[in-house]
Amino acid sequence: MRLYQCQPMLSAGDWSAIWLTFKLASLTTLILLLIGTPLAWHLARTRRWWKAPLSAVVALPIVLPPTVLGFYLLITMGPKGPIGQLTASLGLGTLPFTFSGLVIASVFYSLPFVVQPIQNAFETLDMRLMEAASTLRAKPLDAFFSVALPMARPGFLTACILGFAHTVGEFGVVLMIGGNIPDKTRVVSVQIYDHVESMEYAQAHWLAGGMVVFSFIVLLLMYTLNRGIRMPKP
C-alpha cells in the first residue's frame, strides 16, 4: 500500500490509455460525420420502402449488447470472415486486435448516436429554403452546404458530442475486438477494469472519477450550447 501512495495520480499507462481513447473517439467521430451526414440526409428525405429497415439497422447498436456487436465484428473481420479475407488479400493482415479494427468497430457502435441527431435536424429543415436557394442559382450541393448544414448546426453539435462521448464510454466492443494491448487497444475503460482487477482502487478512482466529470461536462456543454444557438423561426 505504501508503494501506491508514492505514485503520481496517473501512471504512464493511464496517460497512454487516455491519449488512445481521445484518438479513437476523435477519429471515430470524424469518420461518422463523413458517413453519417449523407446517410442522415437520405433517411430524412426518402419515402422509399427501405427507410424503416435502414433506420432499424442504424439503431441496432442502441439496443444490442456491445458483446453481440463485437462478436459478429470479430467473426467478419477475423481470418475466416469476408472482411478479414479481403484485408488479408490486400496485404493488410486482419483487423481484430489492432487500432484500425477498434476504429471500425467504434464506427458501427456509435453510428446511431451521430446519425439520429443529424437526421432529426434535417427532418425539421424547411424544404422551402432549399427551393429558395435553387431559385437563387445555388446548385443542389451548394444549397446543401450553404443552407442545410448551417441550419442543422445544433444537430451536428449534438451528433459530435454524443458520438465522441459514446465512443469514449465503450467497453464491451473494445474487449471483443481490441483486446487489451497497451498503447494499441487499451483504452481508458479497459484500463479501469485492469486497475480494479489488480485491486488498484486508487488508480481506478482517478480514471473513473475523471470519466464521470468528463461526461458531465460534455453533456452540460451540449445542453447549454444547444439552448444558446437555437435557430430563430423563419
Partner: peptide, 16 residues
C-alpha cells in the same frame, strides 16, 4: 438554378 428567374415566396423564405 439555371433558369434566369426571380421567385418571391408566400412566406418570404429568407435564410434565417
Amino acid at each position: 438554378h439555371q433558369r434566369p428567374l426571380g421567385y418571391v415566396f408566400q412566406e418570404a423564405s429568407l435564410f434565417p
